[in-house]
Design a binder for these strands. Sequence first.
DNA 1: CCAATACTTGCACCATGACGCAAGCACGCA
DNA 2: TGCGTGCTTGCGTCATGGTGCAAGTATTGG
Lengths: 137, 137
Amino acid sequence: MTQARKSSKPGRGPACCPDLGSESILRLFRALADPNRAAILTRMVGCCEPRTVSDLASCCPVDFSVVSRHLAVLRDAGILGAERRGRQVVYTLRAAEVAAQLRRLADALDACASPTPSPPAPGTAEALHPENGDEHP
Amino acid sequence: MTQARKSSKPGRGPACCPDLGSESILRLFRALADPNRAAILTRMVGCCEPRTVSDLASCCPVDFSVVSRHLAVLRDAGILGAERRGRQVVYTLRAAEVAAQLRRLADALDACASPTPSPPAPGTAEALHPENGDEHP
DNA sequence: CCAATACTTGCACCATGACGCAAGCACGCA
DNA sequence: TGCGTGCTTGCGTCATGGTGCAAGTATTGG
């Protein structure tokens, strides 16, 4: 019995850093962690025009319905925007929003790596604000 | 990191972006997509000193061995560095490397979002603003 | 050398998620 | 108003991955 040392509560870090465990960030990473979704996004990054499901389905060797589900996941994660246009649904890459999110994390990590006391933060964030109040058990 | 992406791949688009579907990027996102690993990282971001497994295990309500496995995943993804020190193994957050990776992606996304050289969207487009602030219904 | 500490790994279990098929819903058009 | 197109969703199946327990490895101290 040398192990089984558990903590009854996950001590999250201080609130000064981006909460990597927040629901939105986790959803973002989870959405980005699938090869087929990555293929879809790579296609959209290459050409930022809105894309229909049929169009995007041609880049993955999976069923049409699967692509639709993947797009829903990406939309749910805030990576894509969806808009109905007639019979079709066009998905748009929310590049700026995702880039901003990634950059906030990068800034926080850099702030950790080089603790240079230089807070001239030009309006842009210094730390990530918790976007949604996420509660944990 | 084990791979160094320097120049863009020939024959496939401009120096547009790191391939979202690349093995290393996928591994990075997959590693970041778990709540317990996020808790570990949040703890390390809060204090960038090297941490032992025992230390980090106290932030997750899971078994000690599970934390060890999570740390291996994070090390495998290039997020952590590991170094044996006597009886213990200290894990170090590779903040700068991860931040650079995230920033590369952010840059690629912004390059996609901002320029929009001249895609006149023939006829189909009307009110196509991706600025629909719907996060989740 | 043996024992204790600190961590890793093998194994089994189970929850989650990706997948394909088929049915269902939404919209435009004849 | 029916019909076809375009996309979503329900359901069953299967693979992946997170988890706990127990056993194994590495290193230090007595």
